[in-house]
């Protein structure tokens, strides 16, 4: 996928038509993301010889799993013109569900409980937003607070330890040198890409975000798919909770804090419009990598972690500005 995109880019250069390349860049979001990622990687590898070492790359993959899982769900929500502020606290509460269930019923049932919790709370979000016609910002802001509070109540406000090795191995093991959790991430994104490109539901999400009235008149299932977006966002938060638990081998009710903003940032850097209808799942994955690279690079350069917020924030604003300049002509009515 990325190779063909790069090849066609090179072909355009060979033809000596700079304008053609520019046109490709202006129209192909994924190509643009790829270019940015290559530039970021090149700069970081020049600055730090340690950056391109296998160990650091494994580290980067590792860091991108949790952010990536949450951003996947967030992408679907933002595509319909919504927003989900509750994904972070849903990670916390579904992790706590996992922690309460596995000691008695074992890890598999624990994971089921974890995924069920995230899905159910996502469903609540979706139903209230879609059927109750309440602004998504308000509903998910409320759910953010409810989820966090539930996590504290259910866990007795303390962290849960003694996570069995079987769960820990999820983020330890690797296949052909690639961590299993990272493979899960890539599989999840591949499925999401296929869904958004070739399934009725995926195209419906785009149509809802682009012009909900036209979609309704054309007979698309507006309510079903609007709710589904929030359900998937909840489910992906729970998936992230499983990987988080596996990685830190402890369950903290406050786990996942900040994931809502990071996921929104990844989606926005990935070129999606907060008004809905425009964006891509590959773009989001690129957004996730860019954010992870930047924080990883700043770590390697021994920059104070306090500066990371400034770096990420600047990138978000720059990304939106660039998208606006590039797509300004298209969005003009």
């Amino acid at each position: 996928m990325s190779e063909t995109a790069g090849a066609s880019g090179r072909a355009a250069v060979r033809r000596g038509l700079g304008s053609r390349l520019l046109h490709l860049l202006a129209t192909q979001l994924e190509l643009r993301m790829l270019l940015v990622i290559i530039v970021v990687m090149a700069v970081l590898s020049l600055i730090s010889p340690y950056f391109l070492t296998p160990k650091n790359l494994l580290n980067v993959m590792d860091q991108s799993v949790i952010a990536g899982m949450v951003a996947l769900g967030q992408t679907l929500v933002i595509l319909i013109g919504g927003i989900d502020l509750s994904v972070g606290s849903l990670i916390g509460v579904s992790a706590v569900a996992l922690g309460l269930v596995f000691p008695k019923f074992g890890v598999p049932l624990g994971i089921v409980a974890c995924l069920a919790t995230g899905t159910a709370l996502g469903l609540v979000n979706g139903v209230i937003i879609s059927a109750g016609k309440v602004a998504p910002f308000v509903v998910t802001l409320g759910m953010m607070s409810v989820g966090r509070s539930m996590a504290y109540v259910l866990s007795g406000a303390s962290s849960i330890g003694n996570i069995p090795d079987s769960l820990g191995s999820l983020t330890e093991d690797s296949l052909f040198g690639i961590p299993i959790d990272f493979m899960c991430l890539i599989v999840a994104y591949a499925i999401a890409w296929y869904f958004l490109t070739f399934a009725k539901g995926g195209r419906t999400l785009y149509a809802i975000g682009s012009n909900v009235e036209a979609a309704r008149i054309a007979g698309l299932s507006i309510n079903l798919w609007s709710i589904a977006a929030y359900v998937i966002a909840g489910l992906m938060s729970a998936v992230a909770a499983v990987f988080l638990t596996s990685k830190v081998l402890s369950i903290d009710p406050i786990g996942g804090a900040g994931a809502e903003l990071n996921s929104i940032a990844a989606v926005v850097i990935g070129g999606a419009s907060l008004f809905g209808g425009r964006g891509s799942i590959i773009g989001t994955l690129g957004g996730v990598f860019i954010m992870v690279f930047i924080s990883n690079g700043l770590n390697l350069l021994n920059v104070s972690p306090y500066w990371q917020g400034t770096a990420i924030g600047s990138i978000i604003i720059a990304a939106v500005l660039i998208e606006r300049l590039l797509s300004g002509g298209r969005s003009g009515a």
Partner: peptide, 10 residues
């Protein structure tokens, strides 16, 4: 047409 017909991003 604008608000009920066309899907601008399609």
């Amino acid at each position: 047409r604008r608000t009920q017909g066309t899907v601008p991003d399609f």
